Simulated scan of single mutants.
Amino acid sequence: MDGILNINKPVGLTSHDVVARVRRLLRQQRVGHAGTLDPLASGVLPVCVGLATRVADYLSESGKAYQAEIVLGVETDTYDREGQVLNTQPVPDVSREQIESLLRTFIGPQLQVPPPYSAIKLQGEPAYRRARAGESLKLEARPVVIERLVLLAWEKPRLQLEIECSKGTYIRSLAHDLGQRLGCGAYLSALLRTRSGPLTLQESITLEQLDEALASGNLERYLLPLDIALQHYPALVVDAKTLQRVLHGNSFRAPGPESESLTFAPAPGRGKDGPHPGEQPQLARVCDEQGRTWALAVWKPEQRLWQPMRVFGPERGS
């Protein structure tokens, strides 16, 4: 059983809880999620099964989208409603236009400091574990891109936002930073992920629907092919002989990135012309003549060859 499930995670469960539930339902051990959602968050959680666990890292390359509610005037240690209150301040009288003007300053490439209570590893240990032990943490800022930031509603002290951003963006940090800029503090009170890469909330299913699909023998209706995680990469269509080289991990010749037959869709923050030389590796999916994806390859400019870096066969079968 190989594929991707677009699960609508409910509030209250951790991402690991969802994976454990799917493991039990499917009786599969190779199950993992792509892009962690905190327990207070709900919405799209991609769950990869079998061989699809190999593409989990690529599922959110084309970015994510959220709807968020932020409360002004209160600062917590976790940057969300579950944390301990550190400070309260009066909320200034700001108009909708003033908030929209402030939001525009957050759009584009930037460096963002993750929350101390996050899953980022420090010397092999999650930051949240060290923070819970009372350690004062200062995490390094990381490059992120906020592509779209729309004010949906503003009624003091709450505002609702619609956000499109690169993977790695912390909405809790965005809430915290907004509060800092307004001088009153803020925390994230609710979060709904409406898109993760190609997966949308409208097409997601609940754990209950997954259970029903299994009981009725309709699981295939919801199990998406692993290829969907790689569709934002250009396709290298190869013949059967070349495909055998690929499946054994050998480099091969095919049109390079400068070829007019390939179109590199830029990931968020990489510019209109895609990744610049020396900044990001240029990747392409390797497909057979029927259009099925068998590997992900990286361009080696010195040798002018493609090198398989992630192979999904031959165990995919015929």
Rank of each mutant, 00 (worst) to 15 (best):
D211E: 15
D211M: 01
E212A: 15
E212P: 00
A213F: 10
A213H: 15
A213W: 10
A215P: 02
A215I: 03
S216D: 15
G217T: 12
L219Q: 08
E220A: 15
E220C: 02
E220Y: 06
Y222V: 03
Y222E: 02
L224V: 09
L224Y: 10
L224A: 10
P225H: 07
P225E: 04
P225R: 06
L226T: 00
L226I: 06
D227Q: 08
D227I: 05
D227F: 01
I228P: 01
L230V: 10
L230A: 07
Q231F: 11
Q231N: 13
Q231V: 10
H232T: 05
H232G: 05
Y233P: 01
P234T: 09
P234A: 06
A235K: 12
A235D: 13
A235F: 05
L236P: 02
V238A: 08
D239P: 01
A240H: 11
A240W: 05
K241D: 12
K241F: 09
K241Y: 12
K241M: 05
K241V: 14
T242M: 04
T242V: 15
L243G: 06
L243K: 09
R245H: 14
R245V: 00
R245Q: 15
V246R: 03
V246P: 01
V246C: 02
V246N: 05
H248I: 00
H248W: 10
H248A: 08
N250S: 14
N250D: 13
S251D: 11
S251V: 04
S251P: 09
S251F: 03
F252S: 01
F252N: 03
R253E: 13
R253F: 14
P255E: 03
P255L: 05
G256N: 01
G256F: 09
P257G: 07
P257R: 09
E258T: 11
E258S: 12
S259L: 02
S259A: 15
E260C: 00
E260M: 03
E260Q: 11
S261L: 12
S261T: 14
L262V: 06
T263I: 14
T263N: 13
T263P: 00
T263M: 10
F264W: 12
F264S: 03
A265G: 05
A265R: 15
P266S: 09
A267I: 12
A267K: 14
P268I: 08
G269C: 06
R270V: 10
R270G: 02
R270I: 04
K272S: 13
D273G: 13
D273S: 14
G274F: 04
G274I: 09
G274K: 08
P275Q: 09
P275W: 10
P275L: 02
H276T: 06
P277K: 01
G278T: 07
Q280I: 00
P281F: 06
Q282L: 14
L283T: 00
L283G: 01
L283H: 11
R285P: 01
V286Q: 01
V286N: 04
V286E: 07
C287N: 04
C287D: 06
E289P: 00
Q290V: 07
R292G: 00
R292A: 04
R292Y: 07
T293S: 15
T293R: 00
L296I: 13
L296Q: 06
A297K: 08
A297L: 08
V298N: 08
W299E: 03
W299D: 07
K300T: 11
P301M: 06
P301F: 05
E302S: 14
E302M: 08
E302G: 02
E302T: 13
E302Y: 05
L305M: 15
L305D: 01
W306A: 05
P308R: 03
P308N: 08
